[in-house]
Design a protein around this nucleic acid. Structure first.
Length: 429
DNA sequence: CGAGATTCATGTGAAGTATACCTTTAGGCTTAA
DNA sequence: AAGCCTAAAGGTATACTTCACATGAATCTCGTA
């Protein structure tokens, strides 16, 4: 619950930040006026949370069969028998995480009713500073058990010992859900998973079952055979939604979130079409609807119309990218900033060497200690992984081997990024 | 002319280092018997 | 003597550096037709 509040708060801040245009005209009205207007206006939100990215609805349309299978697989947990490890995969926004959270909620509900000592732990392995290394992952799990674990300093073995202790403290079954498990394995290898699956043989009181979630369909094939067979004792594939299904889902959510008649004809269809274009990613569709609603609210409009959806589309992309950049360390931001400036200055392709030179100059001006080229090379790789830039290793024959780097974000968005970074640093190139 | 060698710029793996943090331990000080 | 506090010692994870080797196609070289 707490994380949701933070999330939402951050979102609104992000939206506000990118929509600075409005501030000038707002200043003409007094703050009192604005607050008064806000309170007197008929808010069309009944329940904002229904559009939040981590909202778990009671009903998940078009997923009944998959939910049933999932429930069947996990049901033994209610009798403290270890269910099969489960591997869930499918594209982003196909309801994997949602379905699992839903099933976990229900499982917990039944477990507490039956007084079963079932513990479910959900972790997203992609969240930096949370669960992206072996140490952090286990530390995070221990925190779920109410243990206070330092961010560094303890040997990883010690964490494993503590973890086992927690498990063995009573007869229980632990269901460990690892979201974006491919990210974890990419960074730390699959030994962790092997250790987890092996844990059961050492445990006397407790048992642990693992559920892995991945957007990468090929991920399971790249695992070592021993891990592969134990992780995917059961597999569930989530196919992408089609436009009609997305519309259904949006209507359900809209009915929860808004008052009747606060949406214009065609708004739902437009949001759905937008998402369907993006491999049927429902999350995007819901976010789009949410941002459109927030824009409409700010305008003081009576209903959400198609224009709001159009504007929201731009906002959403900005929100996502700026959120990512905001979370990056200064050195990464400096690297990105250099890339953007260089890309603007010339139309010829950019190479690692050019970027490093530019980066060093920038560091000088910022009085920032420059990192080595080795590290910057890794940072460029990270930016590529984040989808902000595209960096492809190419060989230029006699003229060496390097990465060819380009940005494929809209000009407008790149402008916003530059504004953000310059504002953050109080600096202008 | 074409096969093989060379070359360049930097990708990439491995090992080393600095930093920030942790626990343990020894020594010194205070307190109470 | 027991209890408590403090600082040093010894240990770890992480982010970064240093070192060294790997890469791969354009270009060069040299043998052959």
């Amino acid at each position: 619950m707490k994380s949701f509040i933070n999330n939402n708060h951050k979102r609104r801040k992000g939206l506000f930040h990118v929509e600075q245009k409005g501030i000038g005209e707002m200043e003409q009205r007094s703050v009192d006026d604005i607050f008064d207007a806000f309170l007197s206006q008929d808010p069309f939100f009944m329940n904002r949370t229904a559009l939040a990215s981590n909202y778990v609805p009671d009903k998940i349309p078009h997923r009944q069969d998959l939910l049933a299978k999932m429930a069947q697989i996990l049901a033994p947990a209610l009798r403290l028998n270890r269910p099969s490890n489960l591997f869930v995969y499918g594209n982003t926004g196909t309801g994997k995480t949602l379905s699992l959270r839903h099933t976990m909620d229900k499982l917990n509900e039944h477990a507490s009713r039956a007084d079963t000592t079932l513990k479910t732990i959900y972790l997203n392995c992609k969240l930096k500073k949370t669960a992206d290394t072996e140490y952090r992952l286990i530390a995070q799990i221990l925190r779920e058990f109410g243990q206070d674990v330092p961010i560094t300093g303890l040997p990883t073995d010690e964490l494993y010992r503590l973890f086992e202790q927690c498990l063995e403290s009573r007869r229980q079954l632990v269901l460990l859900v690892l979201d974006e498990i491919d990210q974890l394995v990419k960074k730390c290898g699959d030994d962790i998973l092997y250790t987890f699956t092996r844990l059961n043989t050492d445990l006397k009181n407790a048992q642990i079952a693992i559920v892995g979630i991945s957007n990468d369909v090929t991920f399971i094939n790249n695992l070592s055979p021993r891990v592969k067979s134990s992780l995917s004792e059961e597999e569930l594939f989530f196919p992408s939604y089609n436009a009609i299904q997305i519309q259904d889902i949006l209507r359900d959510r809209a009915a929860l979130a808004f008052r009747k008649d606060s949406i214009d004809e065609g708004v739902i269809e437009k949001c759905a079409a937008f998402a369907a274009r993006d491999h049927g990613d429902v999350r995007r569709a819901i976010e789009l609807l949410r941002v459109a609603a927030e824009l409409a609210e700010r305008d003081g409009a009576a209903r959400i119309n198609l224009g709001h959806v159009d504007n929201a589309e731009g906002c959403l992309e900005r929100e996502r990218i700026i959120d990512i950049i905001e979370a990056q360390p200064k050195q990464t931001q400096a690297t990105l900033y250099t890339i953007i400036l260089l890309a603007r200055a010339s139309s010829s392709p950019l190479f690692t060497g050019d970027i490093y030179d530019g980066y060093k100059q920038l560091c000088e001006r910022l009085a920032l200690r420059p990192l080595t080229q080795r590290r910057v090379s890794d940072i460029i790789g990270e930016l590529d992984m984040l989808g902000i830039i595209s960096a492809k290793v190419t060989s230029k024959g006699r003229y060496g081997r390097t990465r060819e780097i380009s940005i494929h974000l809209s000009k407008d968005l790149v402008g916003k990024i530059v504004v953000y970074i310059e504002k953050e640093w109080g600096f202008c190139a």
